[in-house]
Design a protein around this nucleic acid. Structure first.
Length: 159
RNA sequence: CCAGCCGGCUGGACGGUCGCUGUUGGUCGGGCCACUUCAGGGUAACCUUUGGCGCCCCUACCAAUGGAGGAAAGUCCGGGCUCCAUGGAAACACGGUGGCGGCUAACAGCCGCCGGGGGCGACCCCAGGGAAAGUGCCACAGAAAGCAAACCGCCGAAGCGGUUCUUCUUCGCCAAGAAGAAGAAACGUGGCAGCAAGGAUGAAAGGGUGCGGUAAGAGCGCACCGCGGCGGCGGCAACGUCGCUGGCAGGGUAAACCCCACCGGGAGCAAAACCGAAUAGGGAUGGCCGGGCGCGAGGCAACUUGGCGUCAGGUGCGUUUCCACACCAGCCAUCCGGGUUGGUUGCUUGAGGGAGCCAGCAAUGGCCACCCCAGACGAAUGGCCGUCGCGGAUACGCUUUCGGGCGCGUCCAGACAAAACCCGGCUUACAGGCCGGCUGGUAUU
RNA sequence: GCUGCCGUAGCUCAGGGGUAGAGCACUCCAUUGGUAAUGGAGAGGCCGAGAGUUCGAAUCUCUCCGGCAGCA
């Protein structure tokens, strides 16, 4: 199936407030798209916003190499995502993969293994070291707090 | 065979599997202005309704087919294209280029030639106009660093000084010796005139080398070289060559200012156009009013004036001037719509590629069969696996003209780098491989 | 896509054709019972790289490398 990708910088920045799991090949971030967000930001006449499946974004910074190396890293991450992580991804979630240098030349089996583990761990309740993200969530709407069940990463009550 | 020079080409191949994207075709579903069809209404135009082998759009799927580069890079130049500036001319400013001829849409590019330099050679390199238009600079060293002279120094008539020698006179009987005078020699000093050579320096010292000449010297004279001028010849030209002549005048630096010749409007596809959504400070058109003077009109006059003419001011994308042209502060009415975000177009048929033929030394140009060959936009053209091939290093075996070669196994390497509107160049990066031409050397025949 | 600026001592910067400098930092000495401050002395650079012009280049020109900033 076709990958829905994140396009705008605003969407990338929003995912930064969600769950996060790091490996030496990449960093995976995940966050649920709240319906209330679609209610006030998405009503632009942009009909593809009615997509229900997971969406993915890739961040490959310039420090990782020239354009050839960056393109290869992004393609390997996409390929690993297609192969192993699609069943693990959940609907109405946005994911961002931030590449690290090891993604260029590690073996593909190791990459897929890391990917599967990362998608498993990123959906678990947050551990203590991610508490620093909680104070950056003031942009979230407090009205929908009742739906924050275990399949989301937001564990703290809204303040 | 070794060493080297020049030019051109290439930038792994095959298969499996899972994907992305453009185009074309098909299927299912949905929508629908015009087309057609059914039914009804109407004189008709037409309206409402039903269906479609058809048209268009959207979504999903299937099939076929295309899908990064020689540099896509750096952004150093030149164009196309789009928008902005009212058009033209001159001068100035700013920037760029700089042997000559040709090619080209154009260029700082390319080709050919000339001049200079380097290499045994093939060949390579050169921002290669002007230093008698002017200004500036040339540190240190050196007598002097730019008008050409001064200085040291050289030669050196007369004069002076001492020394030596010879002759004469005096003292002395003679000799030795002493004193004086004259002459000669060299030396020192001095200096008219000469300023050319020489003067340790320096990157550079007002032509160079040699011979003659001279008191010493000097283009003072001569030969050759260099330089300048004039003329002849060859060449489109840069320039070359020959002859005559001058007798050397004019140091370097213009990638110092500058002068000369030529070229250049600015911005860039995030240009620009269209569509849809929500909100005003903007623009266009028309009307009213509107600088000075004169004419006309009205009025007995003061004066009024919307008509006509003329003069003037300001603005118009480097500056100034000139010519032409356009516009002008405010109020009212009508109309149109900016910035931002999203989508579509621009967006790939083009100075396009190219077999062959022709012109040309070549760059290149002409004719033309054939071909359509990436169009993405958080950005496609790929991920993984296997086999083969190429390069390097070696363990083992075989072989050898002892340099090596072959077989097999293992390990390593497999570059530089990805379109972003499109072309023509330049520059830079690049593992390895292939082809052609040429030069020097060695060996054999 | 376009444009501008800067690379000089460990750090911040001058110097714009003629021997490479300042401040802070560093080392040593003095001062103090000791430290800081102060005073004196010293070391540290082939001026980002490579070509070219020039007698001579950190400086002028060209080409690369790295960094920073701006406009749309």
């Amino acid at each position: 199936m076709k990958l829905e990708t994140l396009r705008k910088r605003r969407e990338f920045l929003r995912v930064r407030g969600g769950g996060r799991w790091s490996t030496h090949a990449f960093v995976l971030e995940a966050k649920r798209r709240l319906p209330i967000d679609e209610g006030d930001k998405a009503p632009l006449p942009h009909t593809k916003n009615s997509h229900d499946g997971p969406r993915f974004g890739f961040t490959v910074t310039k420090r990782l190499g020239n354009a050839v190396a960056r393109n290869r890293i992004r393609r390997r991450l996409k390929a690993a995502l297609q192969e192993v992580a699609m069943p693990a991804a959940k609907n109405h979630f946005d994911y961002v993969l931030i590449a690290r240098a090891a993604a260029f030349d590690m073996t593909f089996a190791d990459l897929t293994g890391l990917m599967a583990k990362a998608f498993e761990r990123v959906h678990q309740p947050a551990s203590g070291r991610r508490q620093r993200h909680n104070k950056s969530k003031s942009d979230e709407s407090p009205g929908k707090s009742g739906k924050q069940t275990a399949d989301t990463v937001q564990i703290n009550p809204k303040t």
